[in-house]
Amino acid sequence: MSTEKVSMNIISVDELCKSYRVSVKKPGIAATLSNFLNRQLHVVEAVKRVSFNIDQGEIVGFIGPNGAGKTTTLKMLCGLVHPTSGEVSVSGHRPKERNRDFLQEITLVMGQKQQLIWDLPPLDSFFVNAAVYGLTKCEAKNRIDELAAMLDLDKELTRPVRKLSLGQRMKAELLAALLHRPSVLFLDEPTLGLDVNAQSRVRKFLRQYNKRYGATILLTSHYMGDITSLCSRVLLINEGSLFYDGPLEELTGKLSPYRSVRIELKEPHQKSSFMQYGILEEFDERLVRMLIPRDELTAAITSILNSFPVKDLEICDPPIEELIGNLFQSGIVP
């Protein structure tokens, strides 16, 4: 019975911990010397007892503030960082061992680090990857054609990487990372720095890839758009601990009852007069930024427009960091 359950979960993580020893060092030669003689170490717990399971074919968003432990967890899932304690299993392998079969199954894409060689056309790097992953030339060609069609890449493949735009480069990176048709994708900020158009192209591609090959995707992103358009489920991590694991609707239900409203006033006003509408985030006499519950938004805006001399008004979704920050502040911990 239990084996059945394991085979369902392509990724399972149990009580995963990672702690680093960091030596405390002040700048300067004297400090370096004294540190050398009398090393002061303190332990940083980057990941604390994180447990979750992911089924085959799921797209899961992995979110949390900077330094929360997302990247460390991802790296433990691909075996690049060894856990201090706890168990990880990815498609039946222990990532730590990084054996061949495991590596053929997975891929890692990091938005801020590239694997393509700067001075060469992407095609050259693709063929190297194909050889390393044991694909025949024919297979490699077919896959490159197929993926290039999905990604709208064509003549960019024969231009040196340094001459490509950021968006084209990211698409080429994805192609290089997916050539061996991995069934588990770890994506760390895959849309970092891309413009809105390129972002949506990447998202569309990932959805397509997930559908066509039934691949499992775990991705981190700072763009809420990536999460909302791709993931039905999110993992929320803060200070190394898992705070939320569940469907996106429930999380947005907790977070986005609020919308962020930015009001510019013609004359300065009292802070207290805005308190009734929602949570004030920024107040500067003429500039008000606040979170207003979605249900009350229309009423609140009408009331504000009637009672204050409003010069400009803007309503948007608060950025993901703020949503999370707010979640922790308001104390709604699942």
């Binding site: 075996g79 690049l80 990084r98 590596l103 680090k113 694997q115 390393v132 992953y133």
Partner: peptide
């Protein structure tokens, strides 16, 4: 320096050979 060693370690080939 650039942290791209990670990509090489994830290739199914001896990293020293690569």
């Amino acid at each position: 320096q650039h942290g791209t060693l990670d990509y090489i370690l994830l290739k199914p080939i001896q990293s020293q050979l690569w």
